[in-house]
């Protein structure tokens, strides 16, 4: 009996000590809980805000494919802004080829079929934003602008052949609002082709105007 009592008392003592030590430890927390209201979040961080690091856009313009004249081009692009300075982008566009001078002068001779005159290209590029600034509309409004340099690799397809294509260029972004940009882009697409027999390296210049949304 005595042993059982002793055991009981010991147990009680241990529990009591445990409780008291816990309550000592909690004293600060209890005070804090009374003083500060129930906090829903302890920390404010990036996940509390919408990030607008992606960009999607549509562009229109003219591309000159060497020997095949200048033609309309329309494309879509998707970009991710890694920092204020750098972005990576993927673009896809379609255009077509006109007749070469030879075809026009020679009468009936056609070097390519209509299907072969469809041009598509896509590319993956890295861009660098620089020269940030403003343009002023009248005396009240200022729009943010920036220039960028861009270079990348990709593929151009026409005449049933893919051509490995480098692109380099530069452009200007004007922001009517911070999530919309109007973009003027000048690009050189460099590739080799052997459609006329021997392999030639060509520079194909493009100028486009695009509209892009940040999200």
């Amino acid at each position: 009996m005595a042993t059982r009592n002793n055991g009981f008392l010991l147990g009680l003592a241990i529990v009591a000590t445990a409780i008291s030590s816990v309550s000592y430890a909690q004293d600060d927390d209890v005070l804090e809980a009374i003083i500060t209201p129930d906090l829903e979040r302890r920390e404010i961080k990036e996940s509390d805000l919408d990030a607008e690091d992606f960009e999607v856009g549509l562009y229109f313009g003219v591309i000159n494919i060497e020997d095949f004249g200048s033609n309309d081009v329309v494309g879509v692009r998707f970009a991710y802004h890694v920092s204020e300075d750098f972005f990576i982008e993927a673009a896809y566009a379609e255009s077509s080829l006109s007749e070469t001078s030879f075809e026009r002068l020679s009468g009936d001779i056609q070097l390519l079929t209509d299907d072969q005159r469809d041009v598509t290209y896509y590319n993956l590029s890295v861009g660098y934003n620089f020269l940030p600034g403003e343009v002023f509309l009248g005396s009240k409004r200022a729009l943010n602008t920036n220039f960028y340099l861009i270079a990348g690799i990709g593929s151009t397809e026409f005449a049933d052949e893919e051509q490995f294509t480098y692109n380099v260029g530069a452009g200007l972004n004007v922001f009517p609002t911070d999530w919309l940009s109007i973009r003027l882009d000048f690009r050189d697409y460099i590739f080799e082709h052997d459609i006329f027999g021997e392999t030639v390296s060509t520079n194909n210049l493009e100028a486009t105007l695009g509209f892009n949304i940040y999200f």
């Binding site: 990036e46 919408d50 990030a51 690091d53 802004h81 204020e84 911070d178």
Partner: peptide, 11 residues
């Protein structure tokens, strides 16, 4: 008020 983030910048 914090509105949104773009790269390292907060509107």
């Amino acid at each position: 008020e914090l509105l949104k983030q773009r790269t390292d910048w907060i509107k």
